[in-house]
């Protein structure tokens, strides 16, 4: 904070700087003794190192423990390639589904008044509050052989469970809230005046959406998609229940990591885990950048 203040002062006129500096003396405003501050910072740093940085380092260390060639050999194994392909496909499907549903849901909640709105908002959060394993089981109950639609699906030779559709469905369900959650507060904050202005200027509903609403929320949409994608690729519980673990066919990356680990193939296991870890890092960096843009979107444009 003090740092920021001083940085921003560097751009200020010299007379402002000289006026402000004496009052911004950092030690006067903080009453905590020095050792308390250092202690708290050290504790936080130590905790983060042990629980976040160390595991990340271990993942990469294990992945490269037998050398770079072993690492790439593990990744180019047909089973690994199939898992990567399946994961990307599932993520693509569930992100696109949730993009559409999330924008529609957020639009409905932020821009219209209707009864049952609170119930809808609560329902959107349901996938977050239910254990992913239960989410997976729901689909088993619906589509399984003994399930609700099972016999009908079987007689028409449609495979949902233990196949791509089941995995995509379970993943979509678990990751549904991300896009909607990212957009609802943003759209509520922006209100409906710009849309009203567009409509009174003669724009149709679609024109209003694509020329006014969407551009205003584009960073929020990207933010939701980013988090949705990260979770979709990393989802374990729900997918584990519906996948059936058919090797080379219905194993996603997280499932394969577990299987390989249980078979003591540490290099292969951690090689794939390292991909997921990299995804996490990229997501983190992108998220930080996007948050800056979203702040701009939220910036009140009237005062």
């Amino acid at each position: 904070m003090t740092m920021e203040l001083q940085q921003s002062l560097e751009y200020a006129a010299p007379e402002v700087r000289s006026r402000v500096r004496p009052f911004a003396a950092p030690d006067d405003v903080r009453s905590e003794p020095r050792f308390v501050r250092i202690g708290i910072i050290a504790l936080a740093t130590a905790f983060l190192s042990v629980f976040v940085v160390l595991p990340l380092v271990v993942v990469f260390a294990q992945a490269f423990s037998k050398g770079v060639s072993a690492y790439f050999a593990a990744l180019s194994d047909p089973e690994a390639l199939s898992a990567i392909r399946l994961t990307l496909l599932v993520a693509a499907i569930s992100v696109s589904l949730n993009l559409v549903f999330g924008v529609i849901a957020a639009w409905a909640i932020a821009k219209f008044e209707f009864s049952g709105k609170t119930a809808l908002v609560t329902l959107i959060d349901l996938p977050f509050s239910v254990s992913p394993v239960i989410s997976g089981l729901v689909f088993v109950l619906l589509f399984g052989a003994q399930g609700y639609w099972g016999p009908w699906l079987q007689s028409h030779n449609i495979h949902v469970l233990f196949a791509l559709p089941g995995i995509a469905l379970a993943t979509s369900f678990v990751t549904f809230p991300f896009v909607a959650r990212a957009l609802i507060p943003l759209m509520q904050e922006q209100g409906t005046q710009e849309e009203e202005a567009a409509i009174s200027l003669g724009a149709s509903g679609l024109q209003t959406f694509f020329r006014v609403t969407l551009p205003n929320i584009k960073w929020g949409v990207l933010y939701g998609v980013l988090l949705c994608n990260a979770r979709a690729m990393g989802e374990f519980g729900a997918v584990s229940v519906v996948s059936g673990h058919v090797r080379g066919e219905t194993n996603t990356m997280p499932l394969l990591v577990e299987i390989l680990y249980n078979e003591y193939q540490f290099v292969s296991s951690f090689a794939i885990a390292s991909l997921l870890a990299m995804l996490a890092l990229i997501t983190l960096i992108a998220k930080t950048m996007l948050e800056r843009h979203i702040d701009e979107e939220e910036l009140p444009h009237d005062d």
Binding site: Q193, E194, E196, A197, A198, S200, R211, V212, P215, N216, E297, H301, D302
Partner: peptide, 10 residues
């Protein structure tokens, strides 16, 4: 229509 807070497309 001119809105109170202008509602310019930001």
């Amino acid at each position: 229509f001119v809105f109170q807070h202008y509602a310019l497309f930001r």
